[in-house]
Design a protein around this nucleic acid. Structure first.
Length: 658
DNA sequence: GGCGACCAATTTTTT
DNA sequence: ATTGGTCGCC
């Protein structure tokens, strides 16, 4: 008889089976690229459920929304029940925080809002403006400092002690002001989501106990990419009585050390969780032999690594060598890829079997053009994030203000959107609000605002009246709330001047309303703040529509965890891969090599690497050098060709010597 | 004090 | 190409 458990355990290797059926105690699965890691994680969750563990007792954390979604789908297919707590570190923490934030006693309430990178910078700019003599300090540099500090469980002070900064005193004051204002606005930044949960678990034993009793099994994906904060958080989350933590990862795929990922976490797992069972998955079920040879040789050039092999487990009839294509220019690069895609498609391969990877988002433009010209359908994953678009951020600002009147960043945005009230007037209103111990927006919404506002200029009274109407719009159901705000602010007729396509903006706004309606259908009781939380944490809403047959384009970082029969990696050149900003530091070059390794190991049947001899810079063409990594590859597994159609543009000399 | 016009700088990777 | 900042006008 075919019980669900048979399905869950079928087609697994012995090592995979060990990993799937492990029950209690810590386990680390060191899973090489293509060794069936996702399969192991999803099957194990299904297995736990089949062993009568309640789905709600399982907490599984990933790094990306896509990984979380995929995991949920695959579990759903194996067992009917999907654990509720499958999500990114950030979304899981947001959920805990929503529930327990008030125990922190720092003034934040469960209606807190999440500030994204843009909001963070806007807030820092305010802090900088309030400080005299902040000459030359950039919000970006400070937000970077704050984030680095938080993700390393340090203070900005600790970091400044080790680095030479100009006017360190001022920087620290700005950091302090930033934290104060976040708290005053009932807001948290991305790192706070994890940091505050860690603090709760550390400082509130009662909550720690609730969590420990609730979650019996903890799973972590991509353990090599955990930063120190995530590591601390995990140690606090796991119940010391059983140490049921199940981590999977591959040190060779650590590509996020720039944001604090520390693969010594995975190296130290045995030490941190004594008696851990370690399983190594080294058989590769994904790529052809040539691809694996190329990838293995490449990664063996990293000095800082434990030697590890990828054993090919599939034998293709006619394995394709890895193609190395040297093209004359970026236009040829796009053209070659487009032609190859066409050929593959004519041979019966759907577009969705092909993916184009690149190092930086800006490279996508030229490639996109080539695909458009060749009438090849494509989707770009990542890149300009939907919720970071101007019109979307505007609409969100209205919604956020309704949920949280203390959100001053949003109030500013809303005022700027409407016009008539600028920064100076707003500051005056804020001053007045402070005297009356109200938030500025709350003051504006008071029915007796006219009494409370001494200088009765008509513009401000108008604005207050308008704010009150905004405030009175319904917050539920979510779909209607979003639509109501959209109509109230008259987005349809808003003049977004001198910018490309007004139609695109209207479409985006419509999509936002549609998303809200969908969200409302799927989450019965959800309020506006839950919707806003979801929105803040979903990076790519123009997500990968699997139903559409298109070529997929994305950065190498985005590609981790995916696989495609046909893979193209563009711009395998010095300054892109390794990126120019990394070449001074050998450790960073090793990370670039891992990134390249991740890209190559995504391919099942054929991988093509392209390098252009010239590529336009902002002014004229610049010659380009092939990546140093290309010299490290085994030529027996590679076919090198050149391709020159568009006139190779000769690099202009930077100056003329006569 | 607000707003539009013009000019500069900008991009490594993401939750 | 897009955004952010500064200048001068209303």
């Amino acid at each position: 008889m075919n019980t669900p458990t048979d399905d869950i355990l079928k087609n697994l290797t012995e090592d995979q089976l060990t990993a799937v059926t492990h029950l209690d105690g810590p386990m680390l699965v060191v899973a090489g690229a293509g060794s069936g890691k996702t399969r192991v994680v999803t099957r194990r969750i299904a297995f736990l459920i089949s062993q009568r563990i309640w789905p709600s007792q399982i907490l599984a954390m990933t790094f990306t929304n896509r990984a979380a979604r995929e995991m949920q789908e695959r579990i759903g297919r194996l067992v009917g029940d999907v654990p509720r707590h499958v999500g990114t570190f950030h979304s899981c923490c947001a959920r805990f925080l929503r529930q327990y934030v008030e125990a922190l006693d720092d003034g934040r309430t469960k209606d807190f809002v999440i500030f994204d990178a843009d909001d963070q910078k806007a807030l820092l700019k305010q802090c900088l403006n309030d400080q005299p003599a902040t000459g030359g300090l950039l919000p970006g540099a400070i937000s970077d400092l704050i984030s680095r500090a938080k993700s390393a469980c340090l203070t900005p002070h600790d970091i400044l002690a080790k680095e030479a900064w100009d006017n360190a005193e001022t920087v620290l004051e700005v950091c302090q002001a930033y934290e104060n204002r976040l708290r005053a606005q009932n807001a948290v930044d991305f790192d706070d989501l994890l940091l505050l949960v860690a603090r709760l678990l550390r400082e509130r034993p009662a909550i720690r106990e609730i969590i420990h009793n609730h979650f019996r099994y903890l799973l972590v994906d991509e353990y090599q990419d955990t930063n120190h904060l995530q590591y601390e958080l995990l140690k606090l989350l796991v119940n010391p009585a059983n140490n049921n933590i199940h981590a999977t990862g591959d040190p060779d795929q650590c590509i996020y050390s720039w944001r604090g990922a520390d693969y010594s976490n995975i190296m130290n797992f045995e030490h941190d969780f004594p008696n851990a069972v370690i399983v190594r998955l080294e058989k590769n079920f994904r790529s052809s032999e040539h691809i694996l040879n190329v990838a293995s040789r490449l990664i063996s050039n990293n000095l800082n690594r434990i030697d590890k092999t990828l054993i090919p487990a599939i034998a293709a009839d006619d394995p394709q060598k890895v193609r190395l294509v040297t093209v004359g220019s970026d236009r040829d690069e796009g053209l070659w890829i487009a032609r190859r895609i066409k050929t593959l498609h004519l041979n019966g391969n759907p577009y969705r079997t092909m993916a184009v990877f690149y190092r930086t988002n800006r490279q996508s433009r030229a490639l996109e053009e080539a695909l458009v010209r060749a009438a090849i359908p494509y989707q770009i994953i990542g890149g300009l994030r939907f919720y970071a678009r101007r019109e979307i951020k505007d609409l969100l600002a209205f919604l956020r203000l309704k949920v949280n009147p203390a959100d001053r960043i949003s109030l500013e945005r809303v005022a700027a959107f409407r016009g008539g009230v600028g920064p100076k007037t707003l500051a005056a209103i804020e001053q007045c609000a402070r005297e009356q111990h109200l938030e500025a927006f709350t003051l504006l919404c008071q029915p007796d605002f006219a009494h409370r506002w001494q200088k009765k200029n008509a513009k401000v009274l108008d604005f207050a009246n308008w704010c009150r109407q905004l405030h009175d719009l319904p917050c539920t159901p979510v779909g209607q709330a979003v639509a109501a705000v959209h109509d109230f602010a008259d987005f349809t007729h808003h003049a977004y001047d001198r910018e490309g396509t007004p139609e695109a903006r209207q479409e985006n706004l419509q999509e936002m309303i549609t998303n809200a309606i969908h969200y409302e259908r799927e989450h019965d009781q959800a309020g506006l703040n839950e919707f806003l939380q979801e929105v803040a944490l979903v990076a790519d809403v123009d997500t990968h529509d699997l139903d559409r047959d298109t070529v997929i384009m994305m950065t190498l970082h985005c590609a981790k965890g995916l696989e495609f029969p046909y893979v193209f990696i563009a711009g395998v050149e010095e300054d892109y891969l390794p990126h120019a900003n990394t070449v001074a530091d050998p450790d960073q070059v090793e990370e670039e090599r891992r990134l390249f390794f991740v890209g190559i190991t995504r391919g099942r049947e054929e991988v093509a690497l392209l390098n252009a001899r010239s590529r336009p810079s902002w002014d004229g063409d610049w010659g380009r050098q092939p990546s140093r990594f290309l010299r490290e590859l085994p030529m027996d597994d590679i076919i090198h060709t050149t391709f020159n159609v568009n006139n190779p543009t000769v690099p202009k000399p930077t100056f003329r010597r006569w």
